[in-house]
Design a protein around this nucleic acid. Structure first.
Lengths: 341, 341
DNA sequence: AAGTTAATTCAAAGCGCTTTGGATGACTAA
DNA sequence: TTAGTCATCCAAAGCGCTTTGAATTAACTT
């Protein structure tokens, strides 16, 4: 069923039918209702391609997900982020188009989306500290919003980020308050901006309190359960082991916890863990009492906000870039305790 | 840059340029090269919408991801599945369009995709034992492939599934061989087909060996870490505790493990766990020696296969539905051992 | 030299929609 | 009456591509 058929059935012109359905004023209320009824009845929905072609807007947002060829690693927060964003898109009648791309193919993917006109804007995932994509997207004139920020970028752009630095500053303070001094920091890859900022927060807190931080206790890697386990295992078995772990993700923290248990120690009593919790739907942090003490911020909500920001930008291209800095909550759970005497 | 401009620059007709770029034979090799060079130089890529409108094919595959409103739960395997499928789409020049939908809105989403012509086919995720979507999609004539199967459906359709029944049969046998008799079964939601089949496999194995299974040890829920923990905790603290756990997902198994550790027992020695491992990229099952004994099958690979199947179906609408039943490997890890005397 | 055939190229229609620039008729105002 | 104003509706152009059917040229036959 297409416009032509529908308008023939109704004995009206395509113009009128189109206008009736799109809520234009130059059509009588009577015919509008008649048209709507008919559209409903015949299950008519305007063809997206045709509409896009006519309007010049594609009503779709692109997400490019890089899969590192090395590890074939897909970011575990991805599902929840997408679900937050997707809900917003649906509400505004937008589609979400995903492109999976190997490592450095992202710019090509953006350029392709742009020149093929398949999206009206894109979301930039996992910005690095120096992020070439930002300049690139501006250059090719494709609207975008970033989930996170790029420390090395001083131009203005749309972003939604959590206050990683402050969150990890607070988390570190929390451990320091409990008397911990040897704190291991299990971070993500530090060319990623979020990890860089978390590191800054950690160092800042340590320095402010006059506690020397030990570079030998600072790690940076892709945040798997395994990485947490292996690292913690090595440290805890070694000499001068840390008394606390500051960890960048729940999954990783589960690994650290496993190492602690494997060594017949008890988390919270023998060793403390504080982690960042993205509030992933399939990984709730305990039921009533949180398992892990954590800095907490919903990545799903971030998804919604990024989407809103981008859609607002698209709706008004002259709008100034928007920024939202979300504070993480510090939730006390069972994984932290005072340092052992 | 569009076709018209490009052809003006080249001093050729749009027809010829279009044909040159699309590899039609009725254009001389000389001009073809000339055209390709120019297209490259001016960064020309055909507008997707226009092309789709002209060809009637949208070159996009739809994925509808349901988010249960109750738990806002996004399936953790989603990211990896998508990444597998996405790679195949890219290779074939297809886009992937995602729609996030609340619970029962899936059919509406499919219908919309169909009538708006935004996709050439869809992937059905998480089929239930009786799955209305299959009939529905056939009815509206939208090509599809299912990740999994629907036991209650006896029509023929494209699917890619793992042999859940056999995998769990084998896993159960493995535990029985180690002397376990009281085996707790921590399953997913059993209206989901995969969970139903796993249950069948479990019961079948127990029955074949003449071991009575205790319904009080069989659980069905959304597979979070928490669910594993709570369930195991209750069972292990209760009377007549199970000596082994058969678990439907790694994440869940991590919870079971946590409960075991919390009770100062040792996994593999005091209590055994065998789980299914979807080989999620961010959740590798140990480095050299697997943490968990598991039935193992890559969901990423399943994603690729489903995508291939669907694309083949679209390329040849008369093709008979294809099926692929993947066997899971049984990998022995550190989480299982003989029952304690 | 005239007639065929093959190799290239092109003009124009059409995909399904939105939107511009009128028409048409009813109604009001002068 | 005549002109002007609304309120409705419509024909047709255009979005950027593919594809049909035809034209043009070159090459080959007889």
């Amino acid at each position: 069923m297409n416009l032509k058929e529908l308008s023939t059935i109704l004995g009206l012109s395509q113009t009128t039918v189109s206008r009736a359905l799109n809520g234009y004023p130059e059509v009588s209320e009577e015919t509008r209702i008649k048209v709507q009824k008919a559209a409903e009845k015949h299950n008519y929905r305007p063809n997206t391609k045709a509409r896009s072609l006519a309007t010049g807007r594609s009503m779709a947002i692109g997400h490019v997900i890089p899969v590192s060829t090395k590890h074939e690693m897909v970011n575990p927060i991805f599902g929840d982020f997408i679900s937050g964003a997707g809900e917003v898109y649906s509400k505004h009648g937008y589609d979400m188009v995903l492109t999976v791309v190997e490592d450095k193919g992202e710019e090509a993917a953006y350029r392709q989306m742009q020149s093929r006109g398949s999206v009206d804007g894109v979301v930039v995932h996992g910005p690095l500290t120096t992020e070439p994509r930002i300049d690139f997207l501006r250059k090719i004139g494709l609207p975008f919003a970033v989930h996170g920020r790029a420390s090395g970028e001083n131009s203005d752009y749309n972003w939604v980020d959590i206050n990683n630095r402050r969150a990890f500053h607070r988390a570190t303070d929390f451990l320091l308050d409990l008397g911990h001094r040897r704190i291991a920091f299990i971070n993500g890859l530090e060319y990623m901006d979020f990890a860089y900022r978390r590191r800054e927060g950690f160092i800042e807190a340590m320095t402010e309190r006059g506690v020397a931080y030990d570079p030998a206790l600072m790690f940076s890697n892709e945040m798997t359960e395994d990485y947490g386990y292996e690292t913690a295992m090595t440290l805890l078995r070694g000499e001068n082991a840390p008394t606390a772990f500051l960890v960048s993700s729940m999954i990783c923290a589960l690994g650290v916890r496993r190492a602690i248990e494997d060594l017949n120690m008890k988390m919270g009593r023998d060793v403390s863990i504080i982690t960042h919790d993205d509030v992933l739907s399939y990984m709730p942090n305990g039921k009533d009492l949180p398992i892990f003490t954590s800095t907490r911020s919903s990545v799903r909500q971030a998804g919604s906000l990024v989407a809103e920001t981008l859609l607002a930008q698209i709706a008004d291209p002259l709008r100034k870039p928007q920024h939202q800095l979300l504070e993480a909550e510090l939730m006390v759970g069972q994984s932290t305790g005072p340092v052992k005497a």
